[in-house]
């Protein structure tokens, strides 16, 4: 069997890479990809805990699966809105580099 902490370490690694992408990249779509990676890391965590909790209980526990399904719904909604925002900003400012979007800077 695979120890639970292997999943948690993989998830922490993916989360950190996503965090770096969010903090360091200049391209808005690259930041969005980092967010997707972080959400995937969270989903690995949720499903790993769900799996081992179900093994302990002996029957499938639905709460963890519902949590993971909610993360999927959130990821889809967030991507749709964020890409619409990026395309709208590109149409007005002709850039998708977040450093150059200084409309709100005083």
């Amino acid at each position: 069997m695979i120890p639970l902490s292997w999943y948690l370490i993989l998830s922490a690694t993916l989360f950190s890479i996503g965090l770096f992408a969010v903090l360091a990249r200049r391209h808005a779509i690259a930041i969005l990809m980092g967010i997707e990676l972080m959400l995937n890391a969270v989903n690995i965590n949720l499903l790993a805990f769900w799996h081992y909790w179900s093994q302990i209980k002996g029957v499938p526990q639905v709460s963890g699966m519902v949590f993971a399904a909610m993360i999927f719904v959130l990821a889809a909604a967030e991507t749709a809105v964020a890409l619409a925002l990026i395309i709208s900003a590109y149409r007005r400012h002709h850039t998708v580099v977040v450093d150059e979007m200084t409309l709100l800077k005083g």
Binding site: A24, R25, R26, A30, H94, T95, V96, V97, V98
Partner: peptide, 9 residues
Amino acid sequence: STEAGPRLN
């Protein structure tokens, strides 16, 4: 606008 400039801030 995607290819110009450095990729990290």
